[in-house]
C-alpha cells in the first residue's frame, strides 16, 4: 500500500510514524477525527486508529478538555457495550494525551452509503416514486429492523449514543464476501447489498444514562438525520422504532417520550 495523497497532507499521530510492514491508510476524515487503517500486533490483523487532532479553531483549554473527555468516553462505552453483547468494535488501545484510540477493524461500509446506493441516484420525480413503491423493499426493511434492534440493545445496557446517524453505523460485509479492502464496490449483487450485521461506531458523544428523555432524544436525533439524509426512505423509519420496541422492554415509555420530544421540536418558538 502506498501513501494516499491525504496521508501526506495531514501529519499523522506519532504512533503511525513508526516503521511498520504496511503503511497506515487514511480512510476517512470524519466529523471530528481522522480514521486510519493500520495493523495491530500482527501484520495481518487490521485495526482502525481514530485520531482526534487538536482543532485549531477551538480555544486550547476547551480543545484539550473535549478531546480527552471524548476519547475516554468512547473507550469506556465501547468496552461496556462489548461486554454486554452490543455490536461494536473491540477496543485495543487508547492514548488520550496523544489523542487516539485503536480498535477492531470492521469490514464493510457506512449504512448511509449502502442505503444511498440501494436507493440509487434517481431524481425525485413522480415516475421514480412509483418505481420506488413497486420495487421490493424487503431488504431495506430488514436493514431498518437490524438498526432498531442494535439501538434497542444499546439502550438496554444503559448507554445513549449521542450522535446516531447512518454514518455512524457500519454494515458489516457478510463473512463469505469479506476481504481486506474497505469499500470494494459493485462486488455484490443488489439482492445481497443490504445484508450483514449492523455495527455501531463513533461513541465520542455517548453517555451512560437510563433516562427516558435521553433515550428519546437519541432516537429523535436519528429520526431527523435519517429523514434529511434519506428523504426517499423516510416512511420506513417506523420499522426502526418497531424493532426497537421488540428488542427493548422499556421501549414503550421511551416512544411516548419521543412524542413529546417531537412536539417540542415542532412547536419550538422561532422568536428571538
Amino acid at each position: 500500500m502506498s501513501n494516499s495523497p491525504a496521508m501526506t497532507e495531514f501529519p499523522p499521530p506519532q504512533i503511525l510514524t513508526y516503521p511498520a510492514s504496511s503503511a497506515p491508510v487514511l480512510i476517512a476524515q470524519g466529523a471530528e477525527g481522522r480514521l486510519y487503517k493500520t495493523t495491530y500486533l500482527l501484520p495481518d490483523q487490521p485495526c482502525a486508529l481514530k485520531y482526534r487532532p487538536s482543532k485549531p479553531y477551538r480555544h486550547p483549554i476547551l480543545d484539550a478538555r473535549l478531546t480527552r473527555a471524548r476519547i475516554l468516553a468512547e473507550a469506556r462505552v465501547l468496552q461496556r457495550c462489548r461486554r454486554e453483547g452490543v455490536p461494536v468494535p473491540a477496543v485495543y488501545a487508547t492514548n488520550e494525551k496523544a489523542g487516539w484510540l485503536m480498535m477492531e477493524w470492521v469490514d464493510g461500509a457506512p449504512v448511509r452509503q449502502r442505503i444511498n446506493e440501494w436507493l440509487g441516484a434517481r431524481p425525485d420525480t413522480e415516475a421514480a416514486q412509483v418505481e420506488a413503491q413497486s420495487a421490493d423493499q424487503t431488504p431495506l426493511i430488514s436493514l431498518m429492523q437490524r438498526i432498531g434492534s442494535a439501538i434497542g440493545r444499546l439502550h438496554r445496557t444503559g448507554v445513549v449514543h449521542g450522535d446516531l446517524t447512518t454514518s455512524n453505523m457500519i454494515l458489516q460485509r457478510p463473512k463469505e464476501h469479506q476481504h481486506n479492502g474497505h469499500t470494494g464496490e459493485g462486488a455484490m449483487e443488489k439482492g445481497k447489498a443490504l445484508e450483514g450485521h449492523v455495527v455501531l461506531i463513533d461513541f465520542g458523544l455517548a453517555t451512560q444514562s437510563s433516562s427516558e428523555e435521553d433515550r428519546a432524544v437519541d432516537l429523535y436525533v436519528l429520526e431527523r438525520a435519517f429523514g434529511s439524509t434519506h428523504p426517499r426512505a423516510e416512511e420506513l423509519f417506523e420499522q426502526v422504532l418497531q424493532s426497537y420496541k421488540e428488542t427493548f422492554k422499556q421501549a414503550p415509555a421511551v416512544l411516548r417520550k419521543l412524542e413529546d420530544v417531537r412536539m417540542r421540536g415542532r412547536k419550538r418558538s422561532m422568536l428571538g
Binding site: 431524481p123 425525485d124 432524544v217 431527523r224 438525520a225 429523514g227 434529511s228 439524509t229 428523504p231 426517499r232 417540542r264 421540536g265 419550538r268 418558538s269 422561532m270 422568536l271 428571538g272
Partner: peptide, 26 residues
C-alpha cells in the same frame, strides 16, 4: 444563526433539509 434560529442545513432533492438545530433557544 440568528436571534430566532439556529440550524444546520443542506440541500437535497428540492428541499433545504435541517440536519441539526438547537434543542432549546437560538
Amino acid at each position: 444563526v440568528s436571534g430566532g434560529n439556529t440550524q444546520v442545513i443542506a440541500y437535497a432533492e428540492q428541499r433545504y433539509r435541517i440536519f441539526g438545530e438547537t434543542l432549546d433557544i437560538a
